[in-house]
Amino acid sequence: MSHTAHIPSHRKPRRSASKLALRAGVAGGVLSTIAVAGAAGPANAEPVTETIEMPTLGSLETDLASAVSASAEASQQEALDLSLQAQEHGAAQKAALDAKKAKAEADRKAAAAKAEAERAEKARAEAQQRASRTQERTTLSASSSGSSSSSSSQAATGSAAAIVAFARAQVGDAYVSGGTGPNSWDCSGLVQAAYRQAGIDLPRVSSSQSSMGTSVSLSNLQPGDILYWGSRSGSYHVAIYVGGGNYVGAQNPSTGVVERSLDWDMPSGAVRIL
């Protein structure tokens, strides 16, 4: 007898065929059938079988590929939606900007049209004033020709005499805008100072001075009347009628205070305060 006949083997027991088949089924992705028989059952007992379906590696790869594809499609769709939203937002901003530009252009054209209409109206008013002055000049010239003796002898009296005397005494003084004397004047400053000699206080500016008193025709002037150029409530120049068809006024920086004939620069109208 061999000395090693009764020595137990230290090798690991061999795996059973059923366990090897089970592991092979999992690794290879095949369906394995495990038959389990009762060890203590009768010899003629029917074997009990159980079928376990395991996923194959191929199906896992397919599912993973499908999931990746679906995710990529979702990302692409989201990117497309964002792009469309950006395009819509950009289009809305451009439309708003275009509308703003169109409104600004319309406003500019409207303002230009209004300014042109105002210029036309002003030109029309000036043309009417020139026509009126021409008519007044014609009437005044005819009146002067018919009664030259009475015009030349027309003389101021009372308060009018004091106003006329003061105005004529300033002839030769300088014209200075805003001047109120004693040696430099502007048009309304001279008129105001002259009327002060008669104890009458007038407003400082020409438009207010020409708005006072009563309106008189240029063909019916008296010494001391205030002549104005422009509209009565919006005159830009005033002077004092001194008789004989003449007036005294602070004209401009070039001429200073002068005595002129009405024909030299026909006024727009006159007012009488005395």
Rank of each mutant, 00 (worst) to 15 (best):
V257S: 10
C187K: 07
A165W: 00
A131C: 04
S208L: 11
L140A: 14
L97I: 07
M266S: 08
G243Q: 00
Q222D: 04
L97T: 11
A125I: 08
A198G: 08
S147F: 02
Q85Y: 09
W264N: 14
E78L: 08
K114Q: 10
K122C: 11
V48S: 13
A5E: 14
S148K: 12
S69Q: 09
Q76E: 13
D81T: 11
E46I: 12
S159V: 03
S66I: 08
K122G: 11
A112S: 13
G199W: 05
A27F: 01
S235N: 01
A162G: 02
S215T: 02
S9V: 07
Q154H: 09
S207K: 02
G178H: 05
S206Y: 02
E116G: 08
A102S: 13
S184H: 15
S184Y: 12
E259T: 02
G189V: 05
A24S: 04
L202C: 01
K19R: 15
V191K: 03
Q128M: 09
A123E: 03
Q85P: 04
Q209V: 08
A167Y: 01
G146S: 15
L80A: 15
S144F: 08
R133F: 01
A131F: 04
A91N: 14
T33E: 10
D81S: 14
L202Y: 06
Q129H: 03
S150D: 13
A198L: 03
S18R: 13
A198W: 08
L80I: 13
W185V: 06
D173H: 15
A95G: 06
V257Y: 05
S83C: 09
A40I: 09
A115G: 07
E126K: 14
V271S: 06
A162V: 01
I163W: 07
V26R: 15
V176T: 10
V48Y: 09
T139L: 12
T138E: 14
S148F: 09
P8G: 15
V171H: 04
L80S: 15
G172H: 01
D225S: 12
D225P: 00
T51M: 11
P42R: 15
V258L: 06
P267D: 03
A250I: 00
L190H: 04
S75P: 03
Q87F: 06
Q222L: 07
Q85K: 12
D265N: 11
G28Y: 04
A102V: 01
A127G: 13
